[in-house]
Design a protein around this nucleic acid. Structure first.
Length: 490
RNA sequence: GGCGGCGUAGCCAAGUGGUAAGGCAGAGGUCUGCAAAACCUUUAUUCGGCGGUUCGAUCCCGCCCGCCGCCUCCA
């Protein structure tokens, strides 16, 4: 990279972030079409069921990217679609006796609730497939005109072999794909690899008018149409789960590039799976863990659960699998607890934030293909370096404190964690006490003072009894030689 | 079968051609009325295995073993 190239640095002045591009299989700097502005399209969901932790990971990873790019000073034009017309939605409607609109309403709400719970920042636009039928029809029209598409009965198919680059994204040779392709007897495709752009109307299925025949869009075409409409012919970043690489993204790319003659995507980014005891979580395997289940069974309040889950999902590099186990979840919670304990000390010394070496190390780690494990390391190193410098009447030097404040702010803004005041955090495993006894604040204050009195009188059995009572109510008292005890929620 | 990825301590996980970050958990200790928190010390002669290149490889090359994923709906 030429250092005089204005694109070698992000608008913030920090060197441009680099990402592993699925297409080239190399790590490449982000070179945006428009300087200072990033166009990013991420596959959202098909709304026919509640989202599971795999969706949570994907959305969290691209939320991290969204937040990182913003922090680097880019204007991020982030589009995340909702596919609301699809075979699976139709089937779900038939199974449940509801209308398609009812199904999509239910699951769009569910998706939005999950995203809110996860603390995912809203994208700039969230287009729905059914509102982009005209662009889809126009796109299919162009493909027909250019003979990249052909009609068979009421269906329209994409002519895969005419697009020479087919298979490049998923690194498959077209003949290898051919060998595995399923040949459906009721389809009259020229080639088994060809895929449907438009499915002719059938009784009992929704259909939309089109000049090549009434029907509904096939999978894939909606994403091409929406990204083309909202972000233009070439987008800087396109993301999604690894399982979308083939056929979804391969097909999207084929359609889009065939229609426009231009490169569709600068950098393709695919995140790895969430595994459950090392097995892929997927609907076909039936081992899914829903986001709502995670939140609704968590022993912690929503905002605590959110950060806990985010740390768990981000503790592994986005391209590697992350394994959902009790152990790994417990580690994530412990790590956050210790960071909040440190945050509590940091909050005790108000002052300004100024980016120093730790903050820069944190940012540059994230700029290296979102290296979150290193980013977490930096947070822990800051904690471990500054903690010993706190002692009664002593605080660490101001330059280190201001850097640590900036670091924690960056963690809040980019990782979406450490967002709560330390008094709002709930420590521990969420197992202590029955929590049935809720204490009004004034009662708690009274008990704390009563215990202090007991301690002064060396009536330790009484002091311990009060501490035990507070513990059962979910509060841990930590004696403090300098004054009143610190109260931690557990 | 084809393609891709991975294999680093109990677990999670960085990393570099020059002799192994960090976290969590564990052990011992300091402090404390006891705790908690914090702190100190401690935990891989070794980076799946075998060869090769090199003065020197965990990092480069080859082979092998094991795991995972994609090739079919899927974040």
């Amino acid at each position: 990279m030429n250092s005089r190239d204005p694109q070698a640095v992000s608008p913030s002045g920090i060197p441009s972030p680099v990402f592993r591009n699925t297409l080239s299989q190399r790590t490449e700097p982000l070179l945006t079409r428009v300087p200072g502005e990033v166009t990013m399209y991420v596959c959202g969901v098909t709304v026919y069921d509640d989202c599971h932790l795999g969706h949570a990971r994907s959305q969290t990873v691209f939320d991290l990217l969204h937040r990182l790019l913003r922090r680097l000073g880019y204007r991020v034009r982030y589009v995340r679609n909702i596919t609301d017309i699809d075979d699976k939605i139709i089937r779900k409607a038939q199974e449940t006796g509801r209308t398609i609109g009812e199904i999509t309403d239910i699951y769009i709400d569910s998706f939005h609730r999950d995203m809110r719970r996860l603390g995912i920042l809203s994208p700039e636009k969230e287009p729905r497939a059914t509102r982009y039928l005209d662009p889809m029809i126009r796109l299919i029209g162009t493909l027909l005109e250019k003979e990249y598409a052909y009609r068979r009965g009421n269906d329209v198919y994409f002519r895969v072999r005419k697009y020479g680059a087919y298979g490049e994204l998923s690194h498959q040779k077209i003949d290898d794909l051919q060998a595995g392709a399923r040949v459906a007897t009721d389809e009259e495709k020229e080639d088994p690899l060809d895929f449907a752009l438009w499915k002719g109307a059938k009784p009992g299925e929704p259909s939309y008018p089109a000049f090549f025949g009434d029907g509904r869009p096939g999978w894939h075409i909606e994403c091409s149409a929406m990204s083309l409409s909202e972000l233009g012919e070439t987008i800087d970043i396109h993301g999604g789960g690894m399982d979308l690489m083939f056929p979804h993204h391969e097909n999207e790319r084929a359609q889009s590039e065939s229609a426009t003659g231009k490169r569709f995507v600068g950098i393709w980014i695919h995140n790895g799976f969430v595994t459950l005891n090392e097995e892929k979580m997927s609907k076909s395997l039936g081992n899914i863990f829903r986001i709502r289940t995670f939140f609704e069974t968590s022993p912690f309040p929503e905002e605590v659960t959110r950060e806990w889950l985010r740390v768990f999902l981000l503790s592994t590099h986005y391209a590697s699998p992350v394994d959902l186990t009790e152990d790994n979840l417990a580690h994530a919670k412990n790590a956050l607890d210790s960071l909040y304990l440190f945050k509590n000390r940091l909050e005790g010394v108000p002052g300004e934030s100024r980016e120093g070496p730790r903050t820069l190390e944190f940012l540059s780690a994230l700029c290296r293909d979102m290296d979150t494990p290193v980013a977490f390391r930096v947070l822990h190193e800051a904690k471990n370096a500054l903690n010993p410098l706190f002692s009664p009447g002593e605080v660490p030097p101001e330059d280190q404190l201001s850097d640590a404040r900036a670091l924690f702010e960056a963690a809040r803004n980019i990782l979406g964690i450490l967002d709560l005041p330390s008094s709002g955090w709930v420590y521990g495993k969420g197992e202590s006490g029955t929590r049935e006894e809720s204490l009004p604040p004034e009662e708690m204050d009274r008990l704390v003072l009563e215990r202090e009195k007991a301690r002064r009188e060396k009536d330790y059995s009484r002091a311990d009894a009060i501490r035990e009572r507070l513990k059962n109510a979910g509060y841990l008292l930590e004696d403090n030689p300098g004054g009143l005890p610190r109260i931690r929620k557990i």
